[in-house]
């Protein structure tokens, strides 16, 4: 991170921060559990963007994959399994403004892709010609986290596997429907 971040960096930092706060406020005020869960996913995506901006690329990636992709799916699955979402509050966007907004967002994303397709990236963002043997001196996004994880904190990492195994067995044992003998 440069010592004095530029205006571009600052504007996006505040943008993602304010979006995270707004999404969190919407999350705690929604009545429907499904809407709340989707707003929480929005909070997590904004936090992932902040992680990437703070040079924690690997944490940003697993924030999207694990939190937004796995944990929130489990939450939504349980909400829908128990049929807790109130159907009258979960109406699809049928209004004209919703469609206009969706179309505008789609056009903006399309324009972004068109611009990105013809952008010339900075050399440090390009894949090196010989990535295996002539790699960069730093260990990359994953290696910086993996190095201390598998050396200093190896015991904690191995204990994590026991924790996950206990959680899986416990979840199945608790959630199992007991059959009358």
């Amino acid at each position: 991170m440069p010592q004095s971040p530029g205006l571009f960096y600052q504007v996006h930092f505040y943008l993602f921060g304010l979006l995270a706060i707004a999404s969190a406020l919407a999350f705690v005020t929604r009545k429907s559990p499904v809407a709340a869960a989707l707003w929480l996913v929005s909070v997590m995506f904004n936090l992932a963007a902040l992680y990437v901006m703070m040079d924690a690329h690997f944490v940003g990636a697993i924030q999207v994959l694990v939190y937004a992709g796995a944990i929130m799916v489990v939450f939504l699955f349980v909400v829908m399994l128990l049929n807790l979402g109130h159907p009258d509050e979960l109406s699809d966007i049928r209004g004209r403004w919703g469609r206009l907004a969706a179309g505008g967002v789609g056009l903006a994303l399309l324009a972004q892709i068109m611009v990105l397709a013809r952008t010339r990236f900075a050399p440090e963002l390009q894949v090196p010609a010989n990535p295996v043997f002539g790699g960069p001196p730093d260990r990359g996004a994953v290696g910086t986290v993996a190095q201390p994880l598998f050396t200093e904190h190896l015991l904690a990492f191995e204990l994590t596997s026991i924790l996950l195994l206990a959680a899986i067995v416990g979840a199945v044992a608790i959630g199992k429907r007991r059959t009358a003998p």
């Binding site: 694990v66 944990i71 489990v74 986290v145 924790l163 996950l164 959680a167 979840a171 608790i174 959630g175």
Partner: peptide, 20 residues
């Protein structure tokens, strides 16, 4: 960042058991 990985693991385990 290493600790964040552990927190996420515990969060996943907590979500599984809690939802059960």
């Amino acid at each position: 960042q290493v600790f964040v990985v552990f927190v996420m693991t515990v969060a996943a385990a907590e979500a599984a058991v809690g939802l059960a």
